[in-house]
Design a protein around this nucleic acid. Sequence first.
DNA 1: GTTCAGGTAAACCGATCGGTCAAGAAACGG
DNA 2: CCGTTTCTTGACCGATCGGTTTACCTGAAC
Lengths: 204, 204
Amino acid sequence: MGRTSDARERLLQAAIDLIWTHSYASIGVDQICNQAGVKKGSFYHFFPSKTDLALAAYDEHWRSIQPQLDAIFSPLVRPLDRIERWCDALYQHQKALHAQFGRVCGCPYANVGTEIGSQDERIRSKISELFGRAQQYLESALRDLAAEGLSSAREVRATASAIHSCELGLLVRAKVANDPEVLRELGPAVRRLLGLKAPSRIAA
Amino acid sequence: MGRTSDARERLLQAAIDLIWTHSYASIGVDQICNQAGVKKGSFYHFFPSKTDLALAAYDEHWRSIQPQLDAIFSPLVRPLDRIERWCDALYQHQKALHAQFGRVCGCPYANVGTEIGSQDERIRSKISELFGRAQQYLESALRDLAAEGLSSAREVRATASAIHSCELGLLVRAKVANDPEVLRELGPAVRRLLGLKAPSRIAA
DNA sequence: GTTCAGGTAAACCGATCGGTCAAGAAACGG
DNA sequence: CCGTTTCTTGACCGATCGGTTTACCTGAAC
């Protein structure tokens, strides 16, 4: 019954875009409404608060990238290649964002997590949840890698943790340097963490 | 001539404390003034803008921690021990902050860098500069490590970069998880990055 | 074709934002 | 002691913040 609308989806998309390219606190509800072509009254019809919009937006963002992660980490791909492709996709993605917006955007989860994680428990918890999901892809690949004898099975979690940390740190550094090329360090760093001292020396 | 005051120093300290434990945008000039016991008019007597306060505050913060870094990275200490002590100091420091404020605060530079690095070029540049300084400590230790034959001299910069990235990423994860124990992963991760597969297995 | 939930529009709210201003108080150099 | 400079004070500014309210419109279901 009643009419239908895609205003909710437009608000979610506008929120992701604006918060990612700027920051949570610097983007007002009015700006999100403008970008989405929605009036404030409608905003608060769909979301009880800005926080609730953000929570929904991050769920939506994860939903939108999950298929890409599933493809990259497909069990049909050799585990080491999964990780290499993931490193490359991260770099390409941030490079594209840099070309589009003139600045490195970094990790949308980490950005908002560090910004308001100490002030909004619900958002902190949501980001923590998404971090956990991301790490599962790495753990799965590492277990398959261990099955190939290329990695120690005992330290799968620790290794995935280290790789994830390295990724997040590089995204921070790339953003602060405003240079996506920083992210090319991820591949070599991951290989070191895996104990693979001999990467493709030709391309070095 | 004229009267003297330590209001400037109090403002810098209040700014560091409040922004570190909350965020840049969520802390207003009024709050900083209150915490420092300074009236707004005085604030703008000392600083032309909130941005300028932040820039001065980060210089002041670096100035305050530099002696500790100099001590940790003393050339009199064996290079590997410098890095181990640095890892431990990081953990202890964040643990103390967590005990004091009930939350992991993370890296003050990275926090503000990711928050407003895309919006304020001067602050982004300042954080980038401080990151560079921090990395110099690591590079110096790695060069001394190479002189001991424990590390490859060719990849000093890349290794220091990777270690720094890992540190920043762990600080993000610790903040998002609100758990300082995450930072205990730094030591093992650094050892892997250095190619030292055999840490103290007893304490594992 | 009417009904009515679902959605929109625009005015409005108190609070707070970063920043300004002008007048006065304090303390240093002379 | 005076004059100058430095610092303090508190009122004030327009803009924007997240959020509310109310009346009105629209369209799918019966």
